[in-house]
Amino acid sequence: MARVLILGGGTAGLVAGRYLKAEADRLGIDLDVTMVTASERHYMPPLFMEVALGSASADETWAPIKNAEKVYGFKVEVDRVTEIDLANRQVKTEGGKTYDYDYLFLGLGVKYVWDKYKGMSEYGYHNYTLEGALELHKALSEFKGGKIVIYTPEGPHRCGIYPYEMSLNLRMYFEHRGIENVEITVVHPDKRPGIGLGPDLVRFFEREMEKANVKFIHNEGHVEITPDKVVTKNAEVDYDLLIKIPPIAIPDVMSFMASEKDPRWAKVIGPDFRYPDYDEVYIVSEASMPPLGLLTAGVPLHNASIVAATSILHRIHGGYPVAEYAPTMCVGHGYNTGFSGNCEYEWAGSKYKRECYLLVKSPLVRLMKDSFYRGWLDSLRL
């Protein structure tokens, strides 16, 4: 029996676990699939923005990860990983357990490095955790007018379109509350909003932000955040309420796997997301996407998980087709509308090349996006 150990119960781990188990059962492969995750909850982080804006409750953002045992058939252990021993193919946990494996799938996500930039730990709100979303919701509900700054110190960050989506949703939020005296400014290291998604999506966000009267300032380098001001190398922007986007990096338990070129990310080789020093180890998380030219968001991670899972099945079963990295649909909110974009990928030897374009713009896209998130979680609710 081959043993696949999955670390992490987020999007990547869940997709890999259910795919591996389903295909192994279909093909009659004797495969043990075990997930180890620190949290009892499988979260849908995009819904944290909805919590902050009051359109979703806290309980709507998660489902019990243990239910994956009944729904998808693989084993789930709730425990925190404390040591990864690649040489001996073992993983140790806070609960004192040791797990052996033949193949290791690392889907541990990233850590937030709030103290990397002066003032980021002390000031501002965010919705990158459920707790943060609840705090931001309280701050927004008490906000009666003034200047809001959405600040990103560096990229790439989790969900590249978030600052622009949030700015447009905020305009709607305050209009529905009848509050007109709100100035919204996005300060971001990209030169234009959504530039990583190509000219169609840049044009979409620039038009929507213009309609919503959202200002955009290119951040040429962080200096500091004070109680009432964001200071960059090229601008000083006053705020009454600050929304901040966290810098991200490889989790501490994986720090020994960091790239020499950029220690924020993992060493990884494509096209199937393997760790170069140990061929049986796969890394699929936001920490492994940037080195391969990929976006740090849920749908790209979904596609990466399928590629890695099929690579594992190929090596176990022999001849199983390894999936190509599929075109990635990006769905987002606009000002009283929504958009669907598509990114096509091609492996270029060391990285993926991408070409993105707009598919459709419609208010219905907002409903599609929110329905997808809730449906995903509903599949884990018994």
Rank of each mutant, 00 (worst) to 15 (best):
E286S: 13
C330Q: 06
S305T: 08
P263Q: 13
E355I: 08
A258M: 09
R274D: 02
R264F: 01
E324Q: 13
Y352T: 05
R354I: 08
F256W: 15
M289W: 03
A304T: 06
K369M: 07
A348H: 12
T328I: 07
H333R: 12
A323K: 06
P321A: 12
G341H: 00
T337S: 15
I269C: 06
G293E: 10
S288Y: 03
P291G: 08
C343A: 10
D262V: 09
A348I: 09
G298K: 00
M289I: 05
V331R: 01
T328E: 07
M257A: 11
H333C: 06
I316T: 13
Y352A: 03
W347I: 07
L364V: 14
I316V: 15
M254K: 00
A323M: 08
D279W: 15
Y325G: 01
G319Y: 11
L367Q: 14
A323T: 07
R366F: 03
A323L: 07
M289P: 01
G341N: 04
W347R: 04
G293P: 01
H314Q: 13
A323W: 02
M254H: 04
F256R: 15
A258K: 09
S285L: 06
R354L: 07
W265D: 00
S340H: 08
D272A: 09
A308V: 09
L367A: 15
Y335K: 07
I316C: 10
E324Y: 09
V268D: 01
D262N: 15
T337E: 02
E260P: 05
G341S: 12
A258N: 10
M289Y: 04
A258D: 05
N336F: 07
K267H: 07
L313P: 02
Y345I: 02
Y357M: 08
S340F: 05
V365S: 05
M254T: 08
M254S: 08
L292W: 03
I316Y: 06
K369R: 14
G332H: 01
L301K: 03
V281R: 02
L367G: 13
L294A: 03
G318V: 14
S362N: 11
M257W: 04
L294D: 00
C356R: 00
V299A: 11
K353R: 15
V299D: 02
P327G: 10
P276R: 10
G319E: 13
G349Y: 12
M257I: 11
V299E: 10
K361F: 04
A297H: 04
E346I: 11
M368T: 13
P271V: 04
F339K: 01
F339W: 06
W265Y: 14
M329A: 15
N342S: 11
P271G: 09
Y282L: 09
V360A: 14
G293L: 06
K361W: 04
V299M: 12
Y282R: 07
P271N: 10
Y320K: 12
F273D: 02
G338T: 05
P276T: 14
L301C: 08
V299K: 04
R264Q: 08
E286K: 11
P290T: 12
T337H: 05
F339R: 00
Y278M: 13
M254V: 11
P263T: 13
D277W: 11
A309G: 10
R264Y: 06
A326P: 00
E280Y: 11
V299P: 00
S255H: 12
S311G: 11
V268E: 00
G334F: 02
R354P: 03
S362V: 05
C330R: 04
G334K: 01
